[in-house]
Write a protein that binds this DNA or RNA. Structure first.
Ligand SMILES: [Mn+2]
Ligand SMILES: [Mn+2]
Ligand SMILES: [Zn+2]
Ligand SMILES: [Zn+2]
Lengths: 147, 147
DNA sequence: ATACTAATTGATAATAATTCTTGTTTAGCT
DNA sequence: AGCTAAACAAGAATTATTATCAATTAGTAT
């Protein structure tokens, strides 16, 4: 099964005009093995067991390629600076992928989102956040449709 | 009105056993003036117009105090390393405040969350994310109740 | 009003995650 | 086998954040 996946990945790398290297395959395999939501550093440590010479830079670049190929996607918006909420009223946000602008969304329905019972039993909820990500009016890409 | 707010803040600082300093008041005022979801750097630039000697460190510490007093709250989970999603199926997450563990939540209802029409008209939605934050079973604080 | 003391400040160094630079190697093609 | 653009490793640079520490100061007790 991992065999099949690796084959898929190498094809997708080549089809996108990228070279297939042992380092890239190793990063992908580490990705499959490592649990759910790895950090770059976790992947790096994993890969280094078999490729002690691999550089952190290569892992970063490979992850960038994998994001581009939509094999993985970033969770949360990490690399940015911390931002602070000044409005104490419960509300949610739209986050523009392009300009990072965060806009408030007040909508009672979003506040009623609930964790499924089964999960709630083992997770103590302090709050929740709904974030819509996409493009704001200023950054909307020229030919894009808005639906 | 800003007068009133400043008074409130100075009281809350003192009531929590913290000292009120001109720097702290200035950070709070910058917070009120600056738009919606400022970064530390934006606040720093703003405050420096009146207090050119203030250090970035002081702004960080003041923000930490304001978070503690629940005057502001961090948006997103920034300071951590980037994490990557390996499961392409649409789903959502619980994020443990303590150990940062991210766990998948599959629930069709969460996928049906919709932006209000009025907002949708000016924001091109690419996707949305529902994150429940709180404490996982391992990190649940001793006396806390789970509801 | 003055003095005391612990909290706070500013300057600076240290960390941590990420990106950039550069010289060397190599995958894929001819 | 040879060519070349892509990718590599090593390490410097950048950016956000936190830690250290001597000097200052807010709040309190004289
Ligand atoms: Mn907001
Ligand atoms: Mn997930
Ligand atoms: Zn935008
Ligand atoms: Zn936890």
């Amino acid at each position: 099964m991992v065999e099949r996946s690796v084959r898929n990945i190498t094809d997708r790398f080549r089809q996108s005009g990228r070279k297939v290297t042992p380092q890239r395959v190793a990063v992908f395999e580490a990705l499959c093995e490592g649990g759910g939501h790895p950090t770059v550093d976790q992947i790096y440590r994993e890969v280094r067991q078999r490729f002690p010479m691999i550089s952190l830079n290569t892992v970063y670049q490979t992850m960038e390629a994998l994001v581009d190929l939509k094999v993985v996607s970033p969770v949360g918006h990490s690399l940015e600076a911390a931002r602070y909420e000044t409005d104490p009223a419960p509300h949610h946000h739209t986050v523009c992928i392009a300009c990072k602008r965060i806009t408030d969304v007040f909508d009672a329905a979003l506040g009623r989102v609930k964790l499924p019972r089964a999960v709630k039993d083992r997770f103590q909820v302090v709050g929740h956040r709904v974030e819509f990500y996409g493009y704001c009016a200023d950054c909307r890409s020229p030919g894009a449709t808005n639906r």
